[in-house]
């Protein structure tokens, strides 16, 4: 649930706020859970709504410029993981909200199409389309980022024109 909030909201601090609001809502609403959906789907629905609320609140705010405060710090190997993590976070932030939410619910929360459709309030076909477009855009953005990164590496490491080495 926390991962869903982090991946939808992107900004670390705001994602924690969303997680907190989601937990409060869950505690308050547990007595009214009627079992008509799976408990996990119900939890993810609340987490998604809390995260989207947070996204809408911060849309009027300028983003901080330092990446560490914006993107989540990964676990494991710092060097490659940090790069991959920041690339993915940055790419996710460029996706339209509905695509990002569908991608996160599918690939982070492991929900099936019907569950995502119930949470997003759209038909299954729309979920399928959002996922396909979201994945395509994500790949395109990440491809562009990698190309840009490669160009920067070549610029900084290539010897000056005309040098003999």
């Amino acid at each position: 649930m926390r991962a869903v909030c982090h991946r939808i909201v992107i900004n670390k601090s705001d994602a924690e706020d969303a997680t907190q609001m989601a937990l409060i809502s869950i505690v308050r609403a547990i007595p009214s859970f009627d079992g008509r959906s799976k408990f996990s789907t119900w939890i993810y629905r609340i987490a998604t709504n809390a995260a989207l609320d947070e996204v809408r609140r911060i849309q009027r705010r300028p983003l901080p410029t330092d990446k560490e405060s914006v993107y989540d710090s990964p676990t494991g190997d710092r060097t490659s993981a940090v790069d991959a993590q920041m690339d993915v976070s940055s790419a996710l932030s460029e996706l339209p909200e509905e695509y990002r939410t569908a991608i996160v619910l599918r690939h982070v929360a492991d929900l099936d199409y019907e569950e995502i459709a119930a949470i997003q309030g759209v038909p299954v076909g729309t979920v399928r389309s959002r996922l396909a477009r979201g994945r395509a855009q994500l790949a395109e953005i990440l491809g562009n980022q990698n190309a840009h990164s490669d160009r920067q590496t070549k610029t900084t490491t290539a010897p000056p024109e005309g040098s003999t080495s």
Binding site: E16, T75, Q85, D87, L92, V108, A139
Partner: peptide, 26 residues
């Protein structure tokens, strides 16, 4: 990409406890 997407740093014990305390105490 999938691995990076799922790689969210776990909450510290202090943060987790704070979340739970706030949720329970509202």
């Amino acid at each position: 990409v999938l691995a990076a997407l799922r790689d969210v740093a776990p909450a510290s014990d202090a943060l987790r406890n704070q979340h739970i305390a706030v949720a329970l105490g509202e």
